[in-house]
Computed example of a mutant assay.
Amino acid sequence: MDIYSLVGFVGMTCIIGAYFYLTASKAPNPFILHGTNLAGAALLTVSLLVHTNWPSLVLEGFWAAIAIWGLAKAIRTRNAISPDEPQP
């Protein structure tokens, strides 16, 4: 196993961990959820650039885009909370 495969396994672990976190949590923190998904997609992309599998590479692009959209949505939601309310 080379370093790129190891990086890919770490990315896979991030994505599976984020899915478990979403399923197990009553109120998952969107920054943890989407941030972990984005990290996993980035790590898997590194692996896929060396060990190219085009369908999986495209999938990771969409996975990262959705995670970025989720993070942006979480930031907008956090910023919309009035200053008198506690931040999550």
Rank of each mutant, 00 (worst) to 15 (best):
R78G: 12
A64L: 03
K26M: 07
V58Q: 05
P28T: 09
A18T: 02
V7L: 11
P30D: 07
G40H: 01
L71E: 07
G61T: 10
R76P: 02
T77M: 12
N79T: 13
L71N: 11
I68R: 03
L33G: 02
F20R: 05
F31A: 13
L48V: 08
E60K: 07
G70H: 08
L6Y: 06
N29M: 11
A24P: 01
L59P: 02
G17W: 00
V58D: 01
M12L: 13
G70A: 07
H51P: 00
A39L: 10
L59H: 10
I16D: 03
P83S: 10
I15L: 05
N29V: 04
L57C: 04
T23P: 01
F9H: 11
A24S: 06
G17K: 01
F62G: 09
N79S: 14
C14P: 03
K26D: 15
Y19V: 03
W69D: 15
V58L: 12
I16C: 10
V58E: 01
I66R: 01
W69R: 14
A80W: 10
A27N: 13
V46F: 08
P28M: 08
H34R: 14
T36M: 11
G8T: 01
I3T: 14
V50C: 06
H51G: 06
T77S: 15
H51T: 02
S82L: 15
